[in-house]
């Protein structure tokens, strides 16, 4: 960045095609200062990325030299019912969890977007799940939602007579996916709530008051005034939430007790599949191919959201 600034500042010199000794020295210094970041980026980000791209075209188990097999890994992936299942449920998870988290986070923020001492306490309480480590949260919820009669939630429901048999929660493929969503909404609502609150507090009060004078009710004001003004935040939360959802790993790993995606593959999301191939079967080539497929999917979806954002994201002070 330093070098960019430097060059912009010295455009007249650049046009002449020459840099003075002093300018060259400053340029070198600039590069020197950013070299640790550049080096780190090349070594630890781009290097592994491109290596994994290469490995995706190979049969590679780490202990033997990679063997070039062309597109065989990709062909196998698209004919692998286990991967296709993982891919499908990962997309389903993103499709349900992202809007769900947005709505719940916004809902809580709307409730807490008012002054008062108690409100501060509530905000803190709602934010606590966001600072609890993912693994701890997952362990907590596997105890809460234990499928046996001894699980906290089941015990209460049984005692109250709400259910006659324990709900299997994470133990049945029919309920595991939806039980996971409970955990996810609990964990993500607090984090997004803070961002929603910041957005809500930036909505000009005069606009809200003017609409109220014009006879707009609460819902009308929310839909026609608040929501358009917070679309940049919706956009931000949507993109980040989507990327996070498509990369979900740790929660499922803890709940399934490893890389099986148990029960019956209900939590066998794409990253669990990739991990199992890489560190269970030591098939790094196959795992790399799956990782690149997921990378491409995330990239395309993100670009799509960016593309459509021109139509629905409104930035104050800009015209369409």
């Amino acid at each position: 960045m330093a070098s960019v600034v430097l060059l912009r500042g010295d455009q007249s010199t650049s046009r002449r095609g020459r840099l003075s000794r002093q300018q060259r020295k400053r340029l070198r210094e600039g590069y020197l200062f950013i070299s640790p970041v550049l080096l780190g980026l090349v070594l630890w980000v781009f290097g592994p990325m491109f290596l994994s791209l290469y490995y995706s075209f190979t049969s590679y188990n780490v202990l033997q030299a990679p063997k070039w097999i062309g597109l065989a890994n990709y062909r196998q992936l698209f004919n692998d019912p286990v991967f296709l299942h993982s891919f499908k449920i990962t997309l389903l998870y993103a499709a349900v969890s992202v809007p769900g988290s947005l709505v719940i986070g916004l809902g809580i923020a709307l409730l807490l977007n008012r002054p008062g001492k108690a409100i501060r306490l509530y905000r803190t309480v709602f934010y606590i799940p966001a600072v609890i480590p993912i693994v701890a949260g997952a362990e907590l919820w596997t105890t809460m939602l234990s499928g046996s009669q001894y699980g906290v939630v089941n015990y209460i429901l049984l005692q109250l007579g709400v259910v006659s048999n324990p709900i299997p929660f994470f133990n049945s493929p029919a309920t595991a996916f939806w039980s996971l969503l409970i955990l996810v909404f609990w964990g993500s609502a607090g984090g997004s709530m803070i961002i929603w609150l910041a957005a809500l507090q930036s909505v000009p009060r005069d606009l809200l008051e003017a609409s109220e004078v014009d006879g707009a009710g609460v819902l009308r004001r929310l839909w026609s005034v608040v929501v358009p003004l917070i679309t940049p935040t919706i956009f931000f939360n949507l993109v980040l939430g989507m990327i996070t959802a498509l990369q979900t790993f740790a929660t499922n790993f803890v709940i399934s007790g490893g890389d099986t995606g148990a029960p019956l593959g209900a939590l066998d999301f794409a990253n669990i599949f990739i991990y199992r191939q890489a560190f269970g079967n030591f098939e790094m080539g196959y795992a790399s191919a799956a990782a690149w497929v997921m990378f491409a999917v995330i990239l395309v979806l993100t670009l799509l959201v960016f593309r459509t954002s021109r139509r629905w994201v409104f930035y104050v002070g800009t015209s369409r």
């Binding site: 234990s146 046996s148 299997p168 994470f170 133990n171 709940i255 007790g257």
Partner: peptide, 8 residues
């Protein structure tokens, strides 16, 4: 049967 995986 009453004590599915990940349970007590």
């Amino acid at each position: 049967m009453d004590n599915l995986p990940k349970s007590v």
